[in-house]
């Protein structure tokens, strides 16, 4: 929640609300080249520097799996893995990721063979509308790595020992991913199930 105040300020400037007195002229877009490795393939792009990583994926690379739910890091639908770590791709400008390795929902499966998390979400009905699902799955993949690496969470009792993957730990660590259809119990069941198969 620490970043929320800053986000709200950013939001006020982006809302398109016609009351503030903005700058009189808008300069030509600044563009920059950037090279991204996305799902194992290198992409050389020249992007408007204002383009988020999320919009680079969706609008410039035709990778629509990562979703835009809020564009402010409040919902988690845009979660992707950058160099193995989960981030909200809407909160990050694409040009900040020169040389980074990005894994999106489209890159999780091994060909036709679903990633264990994808298979578990399918089996446990860990979704309804499906819009938050790519973010939930990518977030879960990153979260399991964090647990494996020994990172504690708010609900970890003993900070000197590796946390075990209880339902309480899953819920706490997944709380950045909102599901308004509220498939939460099924998502937790899917992650618990998949965690034994990764």
């Amino acid at each position: 929640m620490g970043s929320c105040a800053a986000l709200a300020t950013l939001g006020a400037s982006l809302r398109g609300r016609a009351e503030a007195a903005p700058a009189a002229v808008d300069p030509q877009p600044q563009t920059m080249p950037v090279s991204l490795e996305i799902n194992g393939t290198r992409h050389d792009l020249t992007l408007d520097t204002r383009t988020t990583l999320l919009d680079a994926l969706r609008e410039h690379l035709d990778l629509n799996g990562s979703k835009k739910g809020c564009d402010h890091g409040q919902c988690g639908a845009c979660t992707v893995l950058v160099n193995g770590r989960r981030i909200n791709s809407c909160l990050s400008l694409a040009v900040m990721h020169e040389g980074d390795s990005v894994t999106t929902i489209e890159g999780l499966a091994d060909g036709d063979s679903l990633h264990p998390l994808q298979a578990a979400f399918l089996h446990h009905d860990g979704y309804q509308c499906g819009y938050c699902t790519p973010g939930q799955i990518c977030s879960a993949a990153g979260m399991l790595s964090e647990v494996e690496a020994g990172w504690p969470s708010h609900v970890t009792d003993d900070l000197t020992r590796k946390a075990s993957l209880t339902d309480e730990e899953i819920r706490e660590r997944m709380s950045g991913n909102i599901c308004r259809c509220s498939a939460y119990p099924n998502i937790v069941a899917a992650i618990r199930d998949a965690s034994t198969k990764i």
Partner: peptide, 11 residues
Amino acid sequence: DLAEYHVPAHA
């Protein structure tokens, strides 16, 4: 926004 209008989260 979704930071200030609270809907249930996993926790």
